[in-house]
Structure formats: structure tokens, C-alpha cells
Nucleic acid binder design. Structure first.
Length: 105
DNA sequence: ATGTTGACCTAGA
DNA sequence: CTCTAGGCCAACA
């Protein structure tokens, strides 16, 4: 059970399938808030970069953004997922954009 | 409670 | 394209 905001972000990140990417804004929106920066901060806090695929999170304009282990590492991971990267930007980024499942109610 | 910072976003010039 | 300005929220000192 998530106790802090970052925990919620990690939960969403783990829901992202392979070969898909999301933006910080999408995560914030999925959480029902606009704390884009809070999401980025949560990634920066990244306590377990293994169970949490933070490398699948990019900026809203298609750029890679940043990564705790380094941008280069993030690019390699994304390419390893099958995503094309060029000049620190995602190719066909909207085609790889993943949408979180809406909350049933 | 206050002030600062941050892996951000949008708009305007 | 680059730069400036505003907004928006959570974590930390």
C-alpha cells in the first residue's frame, strides 16, 4: 500500500508494459493531480530502479528528460525495449505512448 | 506554517 | 529555434 506520493508513482510505472512510454503529465493526471514536478521528484527518489521502470518515463514534448543512472543509460534501456531514440528524443513517441487504465466506478 | 527545490508543462514574445 | 514568465504539487529543511 502506497504511503507516499512517490509510492503511487511507482505503482503506475510498474503497470507500464514493455515497449511503452508515458509522460510525467500522464502520471500526474492518472493520480488525479497536476503534480508533474512531484512525479519527477518521485523518480529522482527512485529507491529501486529495478522493480520500477523509471526509464519508460519521458517528457511531454517527446524528449528523454533525465535519469538517475544517466540519460545514456535510459536511452539504451528504451532502445532495448524496442523504442527508437534520436538526439535524446523518442521517435514515434506518441505511437509508444501508454495510457493508464481508467478507474472503474 | 514558511521557503526552497525539482527527472515538468504551457503560453507568449 | 531560444528565452522569459507563470502555474502547479509534493518532499524536505
Amino acid at each position: 500500500m502506497p504511503s507516499t506520493f512517490n509510492e503511487k508513482c511507482y505503482e503506475l510505472l510498474m503497470q507500464i508494459p514493455k515497449g511503452k512510454v508515458v509522460t510525467y503529465g500522464d502520471i500526474a493526471h492518472a493520480l488525479g493531480t497536476k503534480a508533474y514536478q512531484a512525479v519527477g521528484n518521485a523518480m529522482g527518489a527512485n529507491p529501486n530502479p529495478i522493480v520500477v521502470p523509471c526509464h519508460r518515463v519521458i517528457k511531454g514534448n517527446g524528449e528523454i528528460g533525465n535519469y538517475a543512472l544517466g540519460i545514456g543509460k535510459k536511452i539504451e534501456l528504451l532502445q532495448n525495449e524496442g523504442i527508437e531514440i534520436c538526439n535524446n528524443k523518442v521517435v514515434n513517441f506518441k505511437a509508444c505512448r501508454f495510457v493508464f487504465p481508467p478507474k472503474l466506478m
